[in-house]
Amino acid sequence: MDFTTHVINGLGLGSIYALVALGYSMVYGIVQLINFAHGDIIMVGGYSVYLIMVMNGLPAWIAIPASLIICAVMGMLIERIAYHRLLVHNAARISLLITALGVSMFLQNSFMLLFGSEPKAMSIFDSQPINLGSLVLDFSTLLNISVSVVMMIGLQLLVNKTKIGKAMQATSEDAGAAKLMGINTNNVVLFTFAVGSALAAVGAVLYCNTYPQIKPDMGNLLGLKAFVAAVLGGIGSIPGAMLGGYALGVAESLTKAYISTRLTDAIVFSILILMLLVKPTGLMGKNRKEKV
């Protein structure tokens, strides 16, 4: 029974990793950029809910959609201001990567300047324990799992059934050819950033609901773990990112329960190293041949 509880707790935590990992994965799939500023979008999401709900006293049903919009706009702004020129001019990967790190530092430090470095408290939904027989779970865990599943289904539909989704797939497969077929790849990239950032905002809301505290550097470790989840699942793959997130969450929870609370992060990152040694493309990654 204990084991089941630990697995479910792990899935709850993994759901947040999964939602954030989706953003890493989508952006990587389209422009082969590891957007290290993605973790900080979670922080932006957290602070926008804080600003609207706690500082201005508006209800959650206004704060949550608003934070989704703020993050989506922020994602698009980052793409346009920081990455766009580099992408258009086919700049070296390393320049993109360093720009991403720069954006991440910029965001963290500006929020530290605006809100101070002290953590801020916030609670979104009232959370009561739920007793299922001998299982005691909390509401936020169940909420995390269900929201993440709904989000993944929605995203799959978006990518496979809509026109913009198909354009995303085409751009991901061959941006040059997609352009020749009349797809405005610039808009597709912008859209991908918007969707990825909005998903990060959903992750932020769930995160703040489960762990009611926000601080300017909260995106660091969370972003890193989500990135690990994306790589574990196969970067560029949507179900892979979800699977990677869940696997990581459960691995963390079980390590804490049965091995060591101190070694949790060490073990989580060892899983990544092992995975990269055994199957470098990740659990669900496609083995793409480099085109010459």
Binding site: N9, T141, T210, Y211, L221, A257, T261, D265
Partner: peptide
């Protein structure tokens, strides 16, 4: 007597054991 690593935010596993 449960421990956690500095900087942790998730304590559910330890708290689940304590709750029991």
């Amino acid at each position: 007597n449960e421990g956690y690593a500095s900087g942790s935010t998730d304590f559910k596993t330890q708290l689940t054991k304590i709750q029991k």
